[in-house]
């Protein structure tokens, strides 16, 4: 029989999980060129909620863990090919050409579409993990240093129990279809800015000549289907944000933030004047879960 047994109910385990969940933050930015366009993104996120279940197969499962995108900014830049529109004569001059006409205007050049999707919420659909005890030897510890020396120097060894994910399934961000209107407006504004100052009706005539803006953009970027789906694919697959997030979450739980941690040897009596602290070695740490609780066992060395 183990010398020490500690058990935390599923309710208590949820509190432990919430504590480490709330400390998770992630941010990243990247950019790339993809043929007809270039893109960049900047993201920052944290986790909220989640339904936690302890299983009899020694696993912990977390479902519907919300990913709150505190920052989700994307910029897509492309080159509007140069072309000329206008140059039409509205009222011809029978003697000398044209009395009233639309001037010939040539446009083209780079257009960037900055999109701010901050505040969107997606989710870790399913995270399944085992409890994994790990013995941590502080790399700052020097050879020949006793446990007490290491404690006084601020780098004692530690027992840590991690949630080691078996898998992490992150759902893609669900970018709303309304993003198409936003893109359309931004591109329209960009094109209008390429025009010289003209009466409104002429601008409208020129834009009408260009045709539907969204179709133009989709044509230039090679988009087949909905632009929101294309944007999701750009972030999640082309930039592999999905994989990056899954890795970040797995790494956070499996190696960075233990669910339970204590010093080894474990201090049972504090130091006093002329007295070193009393520390007991903890051995054979094991951790398991069943549907009702988490159980940690250990021996006194």
């Amino acid at each position: 029989m183990s010398h020490i047994t500690i058990a935390a109910s599923s309710n208590a385990f949820v509190q432990l999980f919430n504590k480490i969940r709330d400390n998770f933050t992630f941010s990243k930015s990247d950019s790339g060129s993809f043929g007809p366009f270039s893109a960049s993104y900047s993201v920052a996120m944290h986790l909220e909620g989640g339904n936690i279940q302890l299983n009899n197969d020694d696993t912990v499962e977390v479902k519907h863990l919300k990913i709150v995108w505190d920052t989700l900014k994307v910029e897509v830049c492309f080159n509007l090919p140069g072309f000329c529109i206008g140059g039409w004569c509205i009222i011809p001059d029978p003697w000398n050409g044209c009395l009233v006409g639309v001037p010939k205007i040539c446009i083209g050049g780079p257009i960037c579409v900055p999109l701010d999707l901050s505040g969107l919420v997606s989710e870790v659909n399913d995270l399944k993990a085992n409890l994994k005890p790990v013995y941590f030897v502080d790399p700052a510890r020097t050879a020949g240093e006793s446990d007490l020396d290491a404690e006084f120097a601020g780098h004692p060894n530690k027992w840590r129990i991690f949630l080691d994910p078996v898998f992490v399934h992150v759902d893609p961000i669900d970018i709303p279809a309304s993003i198409a209107n936003i893109i359309e407006n931004i591109v329209r504004d960009a094109i209008e800015n390429m025009f010289p100052v003209l009466p409104g009706f002429i601008v409208d005539a020129l834009l009408a000549a260009i045709g539907p803006i969204l179709d133009l953009v989709k044509g230039l970027l090679g988009i087949v289907g909905d632009i929101n789906d294309w944007l999701t694919d750009l972030l999640m697959n082309t930039f592999d944000l999905l994989g990056i997030i899954e890795t970040a979450i797995a790494d956070y739980f499996a190696a960075k933030t233990p669910i339970y941690e204590f010093e080894d040897p474990y201090p049972v009596l504090d130091a006093g004047p002329g007295l070193i602290p009393v520390k007991i070695p903890i051995r054979n740490l094991a951790s398991h879960v069943n549907s009702k609780e988490m159980i940690v066992t250990a021996d006194v060395g």
Partner: peptide, 8 residues
């Protein structure tokens, strides 16, 4: 209970 501890 929510938390249990025993020592042999």
């Amino acid at each position: 209970c929510e938390l249990f501890a025993s020592v042999h």
